[in-house]
Design a protein around this nucleic acid. Structure first.
Lengths: 239, 239
DNA sequence: CGTACTATTGATAGATATCAACGCTGGTGG
DNA sequence: CCACCAGCGTTGATATCTATCAATAGTACG
């Protein structure tokens, strides 16, 4: 089963017909190196992009030369369904690690009316993306640095778990501390210190781009994490 | 012309047929007092809500009892098209001032396929909402308190101008400083001081719930405001 | 082997929160 | 009519968090 199917089935099971449609869709993809831009602010949106492998991000550069990351795109995530409606991008999208990306002509998305189940699933993904943005806003505004990072880790754990990219202990987090810092609006130095705090508390280990979550339950409690905004299907009974 | 039409025509002109459809849609509305909830986190989404008059907001309550406002809903704004897909709300929506609200059954939204122009306009509105969220994220993360407020004011100026709710000098901002503080993640005290700074610099006046923007150009420059994310139709030639 | 990037540590400065108090205003009830 | 009260805006003093600056060490890589 391909990654997109895996993700979308967190909303609702898809028919075999839709699944093979997605399999076909995902066939043609291309690689981006780490640190490359997929599209730049100001560009006219072209295709819809789907991340199949690797971490990408939405970001903006501010007037003072800082970069701010506004979203992580992990495998299974889209870069804006329906973006073709807008004349130009208001942000850039770039890779944080080597990425495998599928270009989907927007016409394909627009002609999905005869696949209502799939369309609903894509809608779900869009709504969740927006919910994540809202949660990030709260995260930055209300929590202190160690909690912010912990909250982000909890989210990534669930999102990556939804596409089965986690192990028992954690997941690969292929980004630098400095990139991590651009996400919740912290300085790289402060991120470093906050990580040490989390390590000292026995909550996580982070080494060689690998994040081990030692005690998920305690990490969620520590950061005030409530997974409701991810709107994940309860997969308790899944096999 | 009704307010929704006014707003959507910032994307593209609508046909007369679509306009009268919207007129009809907007007919049945109800009033909410200030400080009432339209829907609560955890509720099952029912209708789509459209604000016709007044200020409402999306908000969440955090574990420490703080409220964080994640979006302002001003006249012409929707509360989540397609929200019916999700089982429960991940945030609440409440009024900041007395509000006139239209309930739109989600079935009406889902059956818009025969009005492609209108559908595209609604898509545009949704994409702009998401872009605003991203910009707020950058705003909180990267700017200092006075700039954050200034940026917010610039945005509201353009958004309210798009529905012709601004005067030459400014607009009505029917919220308290404490509510204002819950928006960019500041304390009420610090908001108060930041406002005084903006006043002292001759950038704004704020009295009796009325915000005067004394020098829009300088305010935008001061806050590093770039309107591109609002994706407003260039109305220079409008009559 | 040098170079660039990344992670780390210490010291200091700056921004913002918190706590506490006070005045103003509008509404309410005696 | 007046006293009282609650909500809002304001001010001052202090504490806390986070950024910034600077330096060092480890690491990957050509």
């Amino acid at each position: 089963m391909n990654l997109l199917t895996r993700k979308l089935e967190n909303f609702a099971p898809l028919g075999n017909d839709d699944k093979s449609f997605l399999d076909e869709l995902v066939r043609k993809n291309r690689m981006f190196e780490r640190g490359k831009d997929i599209i730049l602010e100001g560009d006219a949106p072209d295709n819809v992009h789907l991340i199949l492998d690797g971490f990408a991000c939405r970001y903006k550069l501010t007037s003072n030369g800082e970069r701010h990351i506004m979203a992580y795109l992990v495998p299974g995530d889209f870069r804006d369904l329906h973006i073709a409606i807008l004349k130009e991008m208001d942000h850039s999208v770039g890779t944080l690690s080597p990425c495998q990306v599928v270009d989907i002509p927007s016409s394909i998305i627009e002609n999905l009316t005869e696949r209502p189940g799939l369309m609903r699933a894509l809608w779900w993904a869009t709504l969740v993306d927006e919910a994540i943005l809202r949660e990030w806003l709260v995260n930055i505004a209300q929590r202190e640095a160690p909690q912010r990072l912990a909250h982000l880790f909890c989210e990534l754990l669930l999102r990556l778990n939804a596409v089965e990219l986690t192990t028992m202990e954690g997941f690969e987090l292929p980004i630098t501390q400095s990139e991590l810092a651009d996400t919740p609006g912290l300085s790289a130095v402060h991120v470093n210190r906050s990580l040490q705090m989390l390590r000292a508390d026995g909550l996580i280990e982070l080494k060689d781009r690998n994040l081990l979550i030692l005690d998920p339950h305690r990490l969620m409690e520590f950061s005030g994490f409530n997974p409701n905004y991810l709107h994940l299907f309860d997969r308790a009974g899944r096999h």
